[in-house]
Design a protein around this nucleic acid. Sequence first.
DNA 1: GAGGGAATTCTACGCTTGATGAGTTCACCC
DNA 2: GGGTGAACTCATCAAGCGTAGAATTCCCTC
Lengths: 212, 212
Amino acid sequence: MRYPTGLLGSGTVEPENRRTAGRRAGDSGTRAAILDAAREQFAAKGYDGASLRVIAASAGVDTGLIRHFYGSKDDLFDAALEIPQEFTQQLARAITGDPEHAGARLVETYLSLWENPASSGALLAIVRSAIVSDRAADRFQAMLTARFLADLAPYLGGGDGPARAAIAGAHLLGIAIARYVVRIGPMAEFDRATLIAWCAPTIQRYLTGPLD
Amino acid sequence: MRYPTGLLGSGTVEPENRRTAGRRAGDSGTRAAILDAAREQFAAKGYDGASLRVIAASAGVDTGLIRHFYGSKDDLFDAALEIPQEFTQQLARAITGDPEHAGARLVETYLSLWENPASSGALLAIVRSAIVSDRAADRFQAMLTARFLADLAPYLGGGDGPARAAIAGAHLLGIAIARYVVRIGPMAEFDRATLIAWCAPTIQRYLTGPLD
DNA sequence: GAGGGAATTCTACGCTTGATGAGTTCACCC
DNA sequence: GGGTGAACTCATCAAGCGTAGAATTCCCTC
């Protein structure tokens, strides 16, 4: 026993902030706390910039627990990027139904995802990390095509459907980065309704309008 | 003298790849080589991902020389981001003149910048580095407003000019990221002319058209 | 109430990073 | 042709990184 729990102080000075090892009573919520802290850090600094030590500290937890619960940093990253399927389905729903106003519904839903704390962290982390490294970029693409485009394709019609979706997506991505990631002055200050009003016609045209 | 240059081998084994210290004849081009390598690395991996040692090695130079010529990594980064003023002026020129086709000219010029090896490296480095961390994002903003928007502002008119420029810029940024950074399938495969044909009307509307 | 296993702690290894500082060689100018 | 300073190499530092494993404490089940 390195640090006596009893009254026998021995001669040495006992560290103050030393926590005792061992299991805690009940559900400590440690696993969830780690995931929250990880999302926050990955979102703020990207994969490389986020450090396990900082994540652990911010979760009020020993670094070893990350390994205990999630394995490697890679695995933790995977867990942090798990974005509830519900959100991608929201986007799919947005472009179904009345094609006349699909653009407006899509923009509105998209902005909501970026403003919803439940999804914004994962989106930020994905974007921040996807753009630096090729590996993350691949994952980004996979997610995009597997979930997003696959869900949306059926509603886009054949022929130039994917191209239309791609350019609409590129536009939306640019808006999100300018508004929520880099927070460029005018873009960040846009009134939500105004932004939708300005963009919706463009997205509408990219999805269903004449292009050439 | 640690490693005799003469014929006296002494008893010890002499390292093979050891270069002699000291100044080289003429202009060694070291300074420029470092900058080139730095641009390449920053563009490929962003600020955090690029390491001074790799940059030095790729420039065929000792790490110490980076400090000698540029000081800190931060200073080197600044030097690498130095994007020739000529390029921002190109964009400014593109939106002056005949307002009817400013959109098409702007898109065309913008794509050219991303495809020109002389400017694409700096652009990639800026985008890759700016998007990862909040700190880099701030620097990005400062640069954007100081140089870019300042150059363009005179041509944008008052009132909603900045807002129009911001949303057009966000669109263009999204296109560049999707096409040149992440290289999302359909966006990367777009025929250049087609891409311009599809986007130009949008940019034109954002710049000069009715919005509400 | 005994035992297995989960949760938690600490310590440490091997590696890479950016930053120094001291020392060496040589080009160039007076 | 001598002196100055720029160009260049090397060794090393202190930090931080991800990973690893041993040790400890305690819940839970039988």
